[in-house]
Simulated scan of single mutants.
Amino acid sequence: MSISDTLSPLIGRLAFGWFFLSQVAIYGGNWGGTIDLMTFRGIPGAPFILIVALLLVTMGAISLIFGFHARYGALILFTVTAVTMVVLHDWWRIYDNPSERAREFELFACHAAIAGGLLMLIGLGPGPVAVDNRGRGGGRK
């Protein structure tokens, strides 16, 4: 097993974990603004949904960082990302403002790329340096 086979999945998981925990800090830190955005988008019960989303994202990110049930963590993050992508960045409904439509499309595309990476993690697993693989001599699960 090469060093890239060993380190690439670990570094990728750490990058995902860092990204999602930073999003928790940003959206949780701007609680009022996030609730306003969700309410503007017509999401009922925005405070409750935000709490649930932030908890799920935190759990998923920690799961990826440690590689503990990483596939389930990636599935949780994929689900939250996909729902956010469709509900909050619905660029196809914006007709009257081309710059807003372009901005929302860019956010939608970024979320789609992140979701694709999470799907790869679900399919390929966390790599050899993960709690999921302890006791297996670093072998793949």
Rank of each mutant, 00 (worst) to 15 (best):
M1G: 15
S2G: 15
I3L: 15
S4G: 06
D5W: 02
P9H: 09
L10I: 11
L10E: 11
I11H: 01
G12R: 10
L14P: 03
F16V: 01
G17S: 12
F19D: 10
F20C: 10
L21H: 01
S22Q: 14
A25M: 15
Y27G: 01
Y27T: 09
G28N: 06
N30C: 06
I35C: 12
D36Y: 06
D36T: 12
D36N: 02
L37P: 00
L37A: 07
M38S: 13
T39A: 10
G42I: 03
I43D: 07
P44L: 03
P47F: 07
P47E: 08
F48P: 00
V57S: 09
M59G: 15
G60A: 05
I62N: 08
I62T: 05
G67V: 05
H69Y: 13
H69R: 13
Y72H: 14
F78P: 12
V83Q: 02
T84G: 14
T84N: 09
V86H: 04
V87N: 10
H89I: 02
H89C: 04
D90I: 00
R93N: 13
R101P: 01
A102W: 03
F105C: 02
E106S: 15
E106N: 13
E106R: 12
L107F: 09
H111M: 06
A112Y: 04
I114R: 10
A115D: 09
L118S: 06
L118F: 02
L118E: 08
L119W: 07
L119Y: 00
L121V: 09
P126V: 03
V129G: 07
R136I: 08
G139N: 15
